[in-house]
Design a protein around this nucleic acid. Structure first.
Length: 409
RNA sequence: GCGUCGGUACUCAAGUGGUCAACGAGGGGAGACUGUAAAUCUCCUGACUUCGGUCUUCGAAAGUUCGAAUCUUUCCCGGCGCA
């Protein structure tokens, strides 16, 4: 039985500084943090083989409870030896609990609402919130759990904290998350509070269920680490309360989830991390914009995952040190330079913008592969550089220089 | 030469007297995407616009009509059939 542990190697200087560099040790290898976690929802990083994912420097793959439960089924994955073995990923793994699907298949279904909002919540009227609750959502929440309709065939399924733990034990990741409710940034304060308190009760139930499942684990098998998920929307008092309540529970680490105000998300993350126990890893869920990663790291987050690099990589938006480009744009059709001449990824070392543009324009499958490799490598490298910068005390310089160039107009 | 069918925006292709600047698809232009319902989605694609409209279009010209992409005549071009 190999435990999962976390050691901090260096903290950013300053009394109130939260950023740190460390190492998470798992049965499947070490994770040097801060680190960018690759999302492989259905036990595959879309468009990439695990060898490609490893070659681009990704340390961890995160899969999804809801998706693997529906297809091919968590018991099948268990019988395959866990999702890592099933997909032939040799390194550390995580699974998400399905809590995000409460949001994406619930209030957000069929709307353009994302988990980050630029609209002050106070501006949203009760009427608009009401509207969101109507229509054919695929998820319904009650105190005990969530009823989902499968997005594939409409069949009805039910998740509770206990069920999510059971499924995630079957999926067998090194680290996994408590079942939580990810709320809409449009939801009013009262609802955020109610949902957060429910998430706390679910956290306790998740922890209890997990401990119970661990007692039944055959000796010699690797123990899994459970991370509690902090909620509280954009409200400081709620975020701090959530960090206090969950921080007092016996989790192996923490996820920071839910909806934020886009403009001060990293500030909110700082409120949380100032309270969470310092010696446990913190994972900022679903965040992958370069400026957000800098903010997350300096505010004490150790892990990040995001679908953005792979999704955008498949859709033609590619990161460069000079900002994002849409490789489909006419101006790239005869551009025979790499996507980013300073990038060391397979895509940039071997192909031109013109070629990749051609692949996207002609709808070739390789387009998504080359785009995903590049975007992932870009973010993995970026967070790796942040780690090095923390160790070298050059974080501020890295941040200033990178952001000035990336977001210059 | 006769007969016949057809000529609609970048392409294909609807439309057969008013609700037509003209369905739809493709192509083209641009945008979005943050714990994946996503190799997806949205917008634009005659010109000008103070975004309310204004103007010029459906092979060409001339007609009929209050009104024509739609009806008539002639011409031009293409397919097919007969000579």
């Amino acid at each position: 039985m190999k435990p999962i542990s976390f050691t901090i190697e260096k903290k950013m200087p300053g009394q109130k500084a939260l950023g740190r560099a460390g190492t998470i040790t798992t049965p499947h290898g070490d994770i040097k943090t801060p680190a960018f976690v690759t999302v492989g929802t259905k036990a595959t990083v879309k468009a990439l083989t695990p060898e490609m994912v490893a070659d681009l420097g990704a340390q961890v793959v995160l899969a999804n409870t809801y998706h693997l439960y529906l297809e091919p089924g968590d018991e099948l994955v268990r019988d395959a030896g866990g999702f890592a073995k099933f997909m032939n990923w040799k390194g550390p793994t995580m699974t998400d609990s399905g809590g995000f699907q409460v949001f994406s298949l619930g209030v957000a279904f069929g709307s353009k609402v994302g988990k980050l909002s630029k609209v002050p919540q106070e501006v949203v009227t009760g009427e608009e919130v009401e509207k969101e609750d109507e229509a054919g959502k695929l998820a319904k929440i009650d105190e005990d759990g969530v009823t989902f309709k499968s997005y594939k065939d409409g069949s009805v399924h039910r998740f509770t904290p206990e069920r999510s733990m059971e499924i995630q034990h079957n999926l067998g990741a090194d680290m996994f998350f408590a079942f939580d409710e990810c709320t809409s940034p449009m939801a009013p304060y009262e609802y955020q509070k109610e949902a957060m308190e429910r998430t706390h009760r679910w956290a306790k139930r998740s922890l209890d269920a997990h401990k119970h499942l661990e007692t039944r684990r055959p000796s010699g098998e690797n123990r899994q680490a459970l991370l509690g998920v902090v909620q509280g929307g954009r409200h400081r008092d709620l975020r701090e309360e959530s960090a206090r309540v969950l921080g007092a529970m016996d989790f192996d680490g923490y996820g920071i989830g839910g909806s934020f105000d886009k403009d001060d998300m990293t500030t909110a993350v700082g409120w949380v991390n100032a309270i969470l126990p310092e010696n446990k890893p913190r994972h900022l869920l679903g965040i992958g914009e370069p400026e957000d990663l800098f903010g997350g790291v300096e505010n004490g987050c150790d892990l990040f995952d995001c679908v953005a690099p792979t999704r955008m990589g498949r859709n033609g938006t590619l990161h460069t040190r000079d900002g994002k480009i849409n490789i489909r744009n006419a101006k790239f059709t005869r551009d025979f330079t790499p996507v980013d001449s300073e990038c060391d990824c397979y895509t940039c070392k071997n192909y031109t913008r013109a070629y990749i543009s051609h692949l996207f324009r002609s709808n070739e499958m390789l387009a998504g592969t080359l785009g995903s490799i590049h975007n992932l490598r870009f973010l993995v490298t970026l967070v790796d550089q942040m780690r090095e910068a923390i160790l070298d005390d050059t974080f501020d310089t890295l941040k200033t220089d990178f952001l000035a160039r990336y977001y210059k107009k």
